[in-house]
Amino acid sequence: MKKAYNILLVTLQIIIMCAFFFPMSLLKFRLPEAFNYGAYTLFVLGVLCVLIALYQLRHQLSPFPSPRKNSKLINSGIFRYSRHPIYFGILLSYLSLSILFEDVYKLVLTAVLYLFFCWKSTFEENLLMERFPKYKIYRKKTPRF
């Protein structure tokens, strides 16, 4: 059951993330050009969060929410600031692209992705609490995203 749920979550994530890039638009909006500078900054920060987290995870990385067999709890580095820095970085990047494309469709999908990451991370954290008793303490001290 866990394996099927893992596959379902990863499949849904891929669908949502790919739908963002469909050539579709609900409604365009205009922002002052100064917002573009902030959006570029958010994009770079998002990508950096993802890259730093990927580097810290290295051999423990898995596309699935279930922790790998020989994994260890990481609560230092970027994980000191966010329990899910990869999700956080993806959300920052998608938000910035939504602003740059000035598209409500992309903003809505970013919100859907946020809700999805909340759901997926709740499942993941339940597994992490089973595996690592110290995760409950870490969870209380560190924000989700």
Rank of each mutant, 00 (worst) to 15 (best):
F21K: 10
P23M: 02
S25P: 04
L26K: 04
F29I: 06
F29W: 01
F29G: 04
R30I: 14
R30H: 15
L31P: 07
L31I: 09
L31C: 06
P32K: 00
E33K: 07
N36S: 14
Y37D: 03
Y37W: 11
G38P: 02
G38A: 10
Y40H: 09
T41S: 15
V44S: 11
V44Y: 04
L45W: 09
G46A: 10
G46N: 09
V47C: 09
L48R: 11
C49G: 10
V50E: 14
V50N: 11
V50C: 13
L51W: 06
A53S: 12
Y55T: 12
Y55G: 10
Q56G: 05
Q56A: 03
L57M: 15
R58K: 14
R58N: 13
R58M: 00
H59Q: 12
H59G: 04
Q60K: 04
L61M: 13
P63V: 02
P63I: 03
F64Y: 11
F64R: 00
P65S: 01
P65R: 04
P65W: 00
P65E: 05
S66I: 03
P67K: 01
P67Q: 01
R68T: 14
R68V: 14
K69T: 10
K69W: 01
N70C: 04
S71E: 06
K72G: 02
L73F: 02
I74R: 03
I74Q: 02
I74W: 00
N75I: 11
N75V: 10
S76F: 12
S76E: 14
G77K: 07
